[in-house]
Design a protein around this nucleic acid. Structure first.
Length: 136
DNA sequence: TTTCTTACA
DNA sequence: TGTAAGTA
């Protein structure tokens, strides 16, 4: 079984993810509503998260801790998830138009661009050492 | 017991 | 975001 497949296996319920990420179930569900994550569901409609989901949540948590709101986080994730980089310039301009985004948020976006330039073509997990290099 | 959705503080 | 209500 490939690593990629293993990382995408929906395994744990929200309770485990809560402990793994330090996020409340409320936040986790909220982020799902905003399409930051798309956990699988059991027959009983219970959410099942994969390692990738957990990693993504960990990054989201990092961003939240740094003062970003949903709008800011969506830009960040939208720029990295597609594995392509055509949106970086676009995202930057978008944020500049956002009157409700703080200078700190804009700063984060710039750091995100550095991240993209540093690892072109990477589609898998984003948070892994490399990212911390930019968020120090 | 745990999780889910909806809705209100 | 937190929390309550009523389920599954």
């Amino acid at each position: 079984m490939s690593d990629e497949l293993r990382r995408n296996l929906a395994l744990f319920p929200i309770g485990i993810v809560q402990k793994l990420t330090e996020l409340t179930p409320r936040q986790i569900r909220y982020y799902e509503q905003h399409e930051l994550i798309q956990p699988a569901r059991t027959e009983g409609n219970q959410r099942l998260f994969s390692f990738n989901d957990v990693e993504r949540l960990l990054e989201i948590k990092k961003l939240i801790d740094q003062g970003l709101n949903m709008a800011g986080i969506k830009k960040m994730l939208a720029a990295s998830a597609p594995a392509e980089l055509p949106v970086k310039e676009e995202a930057k301009e978008e944020v500049q138009r956002m009157k409700d985004l703080s200078d700190e948020e804009l700063h984060e976006l710039l750091k995100k661009e550095l991240f993209i330039h540093g690892r072109p073509g990477v589609s898998g997990s984003l948070i892994r050492g490399e990212l911390s290099r930019f968020f120090h």
